[in-house]
Each structure stands twice: as C-alpha cells, then as structure tokens.
Design a binder for these strands. Structure first.
Lengths: 208, 208
DNA sequence: TTTTCGATAGACAGTCTGTATTTCAAGATA
DNA sequence: TATCTTGAAATACAGACTGTCTATCGAAAA
C-alpha cells in the first residue's frame, strides 16, 4: 500500500536535544560501569540498566557494541583534557613542547587510568572491538612524534648519532600510555615522579 | 554399599605418559589457535577440536579456563628461551648482564610476539583470566630490575642524580614486553634495531 | 489532528561457559 | 584371564551474552 505522501519537514529541536541527552547518558553509563569494575567484562545489559535505557536503544543509537566503545573513547578523549594537550604542543620551544606534552598526556591518563587501561588493552586484543577510536588517536600521536623528531634534528638538539626517525621511535615508545602506566600504576609512582622520569629518559637519550 | 576394598597400587607408566601427551596436545592447540587468529577470542570448543579432545577433558585436566591459560603461559615461557635469559643474566659484568638480558628477552618475545601480546593484554584486562602466570613472571622481573639497579649503584655506574630505586623504575619500564612491542610491532623495527634502541635508552638514561 | 521518530519491550537464534553424570576403553594387577 | 582403576568421551543443562528484528508507545512537530 505505497502512497506518495508529501513528507513534512521536521525541525525537532526538543527531540534532538532529548536524543543527545540519551546518547550521553549511555556513554556516561559505560564510564561508570568501567570505573566500578574495570576488570570485569562489560555487558550491554548492565550499561542499559545503568543508563535507564532499553538494551535495544544502544543498538539503535550506536549501531553496535564496538560503535558504542568507539564513541565512548572519542568522548573520553575530548573531555579528559585533550585541549590541554593541544595547548601544550603549541609552545614555541620544542623542548617545552615535549615536556609539556608528556605532562599533559600523563595527567590525562592519570585522571582516568583504569578506563584508559581497559580501552588500550581491548584495542590490543582486538582493534575492532573499540571501533578504531584508539588507532585513530595513536596515528595522531605517531605524526606528532615524527614532527618532534624532525624539529629536534633541525634545531640541532639531537645527538649526532641519532636521526629524526630514531628520535621518533624512542619518543613513540616513551610517550605511550603503556610507558606511563608501567610507572604510574605498576610501580605506583606519583604523577609528578612519573612525568619526571619519562621526560628525563627522553632528554638524556635524545639530547646532545 | 560401602565396601572396604584393599586398593591396589598402580604404577601407571604408560597411562601417565599418555595423559601427559594429552595435556601437551591441548596446550599446543591453544598456541596454534592463538597463532592462527590472535585477535579473535579463544573458545574452549575450538581448542578441544584442535587437540582432538572433548571439551570436558580440558576442564578435567586444567580445572578451568584460566587454569588452562595459566598452564599455557608457564609452558610458553619455559619453552621459548627462558634458559637463554637466565644464562644472559649470569654474566659477571652488570652492563653485559643488562644488554644480554634485554637481547634475550626481546628475542623471546619476537619469536612468539602475537601470543605474548594476547597474554599480556588478557592479564591487563583481567589478571585472573590467565591465572596468575603473567603476574608471577612480572614479579620475577621486578626483583631482577631491583637487583640490577642496586648493582649499578654499588659499582658507581649510575649517574649521581639517580638512586638504585630510580634505576629500577626506569629499567622496569624499558625491559617490559610493552616497550619491546611498541618498537618491534607498532613501529616495525627489526629485532636488532629494537634491542639497540632499548639498550641505548637505558644506558644513556642511567649511566654516568 | 495527524505525522513522525526516539525509545521501549520482547522474542529469538546462536555462542559460550561451568558443572554434572554416565559410560567407554585400555592399562595395571593378581 | 578376570578384575580393578582411571584417563577420556559423550552428553545434557542452566545461565549469560550478543545481534537482529518486529510491534508498539508516546510526545514533539506540523
């Protein structure tokens, strides 16, 4: 019974707002669930109950489980101080840029350590399970480290026996969440101490 | 109908051998499965089929899923060059010990990178899921790094502004599987290059 | 009043895990 | 040879979770 009906235009201000709020409530529920028991697998049923939403709504809004985690990771990054990081990286002095970048990233990780831990581990185990959000961020980081390496070489800060690529490799390792976590969580160092050690390691290894 | 029956003694040579072989076949199946598709979750059903064994047999032999992975991790470590590592660490010169240890561990990781990746990620996500084998190994590593840090301090190799504990922290970070993997897998460096970079980073950061 | 659409509710097939329980078959013993 | 022992198979079952789909509600927009 197809009928050619002139479809009305819909502005849907209030409804779109409500939808956005639902979406955010689900993302918050994921965070809450992850914070409560980082070590236990997250079931969409739990998330739905926490967000006071039907499980089917999650599929409706995010399409899939991985879509949900993808959106969650993006949201987390945006909220937890991505701006601090980009600000730090804007510093004119490349040495300060490196120091500040490591400090900003570490503070960001520290604020939600358990959650980042889960996200990165999930991404390692199965990249698709977080939908690519982690890889996307890591690609940005890779470009950033290449840039820093180049700058250090250009400005003759780098040791003579190191190329810009070498520097990028070392920085890639040292500025990872993993390096942060090995000191901050596994070794229980304070945030400041963690940052100091990573920065010191980078500078002594790379600077002439 | 309890009957006090004199229980016979059983030598069971052949049968015990067969059991040991079954056990090993299951462990091999885990490895094979992991190598085939490191990114997909491992179901005991798949493992059982690969080992040509009933799924219930896995529970019979290993008690639980985590018991299986625990045994697998132990077995893997024992096979994949743990001896090389302990040999390297026996060198009289502490500097050679560090170099050799990093080289041996890296070679070990490289030989079965995908499997170690899964094991470490699983352990991060939920320590119980691998039954403690990873933690056990990591505790050994922690003691090792503390020892190296102490030696370096005693022999006055360490920079003046670093304590033995500081050195242990840095070494903990640099000798981790994660550091290895960030260079070897993520950055696609060769094994030699990976070892060189890690060793160089350690020496430049720690040595006076 | 009538559309439209975000969200609910429920059902369903499929995959996994753990835990029994029963039975088989072959090695060990007398 | 007859009998005991035990590793392993076979099977069943409850419970958790995923992804998909369909029917329906209810409130905002026209």
């Amino acid at each position: 019974m197809m009928r050619a009906m002139a479809t009305r235009k819909y502005e849907q201000r209030l409804r779109a707002d409500a939808a956005e709020e639902t979406r955010q409530r689900i993302l918050d529920a994921v965070g809450q669930r992850l914070r409560d028991a980082p070590t236990e697998p997250v079931s969409l049923d739990q998330v739905a109950r926490l967000a006071r939403v039907a499980r089917s709504t999650i599929y409706l809004v995010f399409g899939s489980r991985s879509g949900l985690f993808d959106a969650f990771a993006d949201d987390l990054w945006a909220r937890s101080g991505l701006s601090n990081l980009t600000e730090a990286v804007a510093h004119p002095d490349i040495r300060e840029q490196l120091r500040g970048g490591i400090a900003a990233a570490s503070a960001m990780f520290a604020a939600e350590r358990d959650i980042y831990r889960v996200l990165f581990s999930m991404a390692q185990l199965d990249p698709d399970s977080v939908g690519g959000a982690v890889q996307k961020r890591e690609r940005v980081r890779a470009r950033g480290m290449a840039r820093v390496g180049r700058r250090l070489a250009e400005q003759d800060i780098l040791r003579a026996d190191l190329s810009a690529d070498d520097a990028a490799d070392v920085l890639w390792m040292l500025t990872s969440f993993e390096s942060f976590d090995l000191l901050y969580a596994a070794r229980q160092l304070s945030l400041d101490r963690t940052v100091d050690l990573i920065v010191a390691t980078a500078e002594r290894t790379l600077y002439r």
